[in-house]
Amino acid sequence: MTADLFDLPQARPAPQTSTQPVPLAEGAVLFPGLALPDAPALIRAIHDLARIVPFRRMETPGGRQMSVAMTACGESGWCSDRNGYRYTTHSPVTGAPWPPLPDAFVAISRRATAAAGFPKPPLQSCLINCYEPGARLSLHQDRDENAPHMPIVSLSLGVAATFLWGGLRRSDPVRRLRLAHGDVVVWGGPSRFVFHGIAPLSRSSHPETGENRFNITFRQIAPEE
């Protein structure tokens, strides 16, 4: 995942009122509420993982501290520092291998991938983001992986956020979509390298996460042997 600083005008997105899948582009779909039945187990798993590898705000290659706190699990975790963006097999904080994916993570990734019509779920790496009020993720493409044929699965828990969904060029128009608790977005195929991000998180509260929003993103980082 390559994070690029890119300021965008803010706009208030319309709330999602339907549970029907929302096509975003070819190979990309939003599933409102798909993860709601799994949400309690997913949140418990996040807290369990954070006790093993705590959330931290990483540094970009340019020396800026990211506003989003991150941790990871799976075969490899995504990292950023002055040396660049990369995946590592061990946590730079603990020096130990990243924790394995919890069963609840594997189950929702499989279900979402199948619902979007992709044959295999991305299960090599899972990045977990914690957004506090004001935190944001700049418009970017995910290009640090070597498996462009595999989709990305991203699910939201807690406080609702404004998802920025652009095109394959930075200059393409950007849509603003509300991602609520339990929503899942899957994108791949022709949409695999779409620019996307999260606008600054508004101050709000959710009964299961307080003022925070958690985002769980699954990626395949290398072709399967």
Rank of each mutant, 00 (worst) to 15 (best):
P200F: 06
P190C: 01
Q124M: 15
E132F: 12
P207H: 11
T113C: 09
L123F: 05
H196M: 04
R175V: 05
G158A: 12
T162S: 14
P122A: 12
R192Q: 07
D183M: 09
V186E: 06
H140I: 12
P200Q: 10
T89R: 15
P97C: 03
H206C: 08
C126A: 12
R111I: 09
H206E: 03
A161H: 05
G84Q: 11
A114L: 15
P133Q: 05
I108Y: 01
K120C: 11
A160D: 12
Y87D: 02
T113D: 00
F193H: 14
T162C: 12
G117E: 08
V153N: 03
L139H: 07
P200S: 10
A112W: 04
G188E: 08
G182Y: 02
H196S: 04
L157E: 02
R170W: 10
V153K: 03
V174K: 08
F118Q: 00
G197K: 04
L201A: 12
L179V: 13
L164N: 05
P151N: 07
R175F: 01
S109Q: 06
A115H: 08
G158S: 09
G197R: 05
A199G: 02
G134E: 12
G134T: 10
F193V: 07
A199V: 00
Q124Y: 06
C130L: 15
L177P: 00
E132Q: 15
I198F: 07
I108R: 02
T162R: 10
W165G: 03
P102D: 08
A180S: 15
R170H: 09
W187T: 07
A147P: 05
T89H: 13
F118N: 02
Y87L: 09
L179E: 02
P100M: 07
E132M: 14
H149P: 08
R175K: 13
C130S: 14
P92M: 11
T89L: 10
G95W: 00
S202Q: 15
W98R: 01
A104H: 07
G167C: 10
T113W: 01
T88I: 03
P92K: 11
P122L: 04
G189K: 02
S171C: 13
A199S: 14
P190Y: 03
R136E: 15
I128G: 00
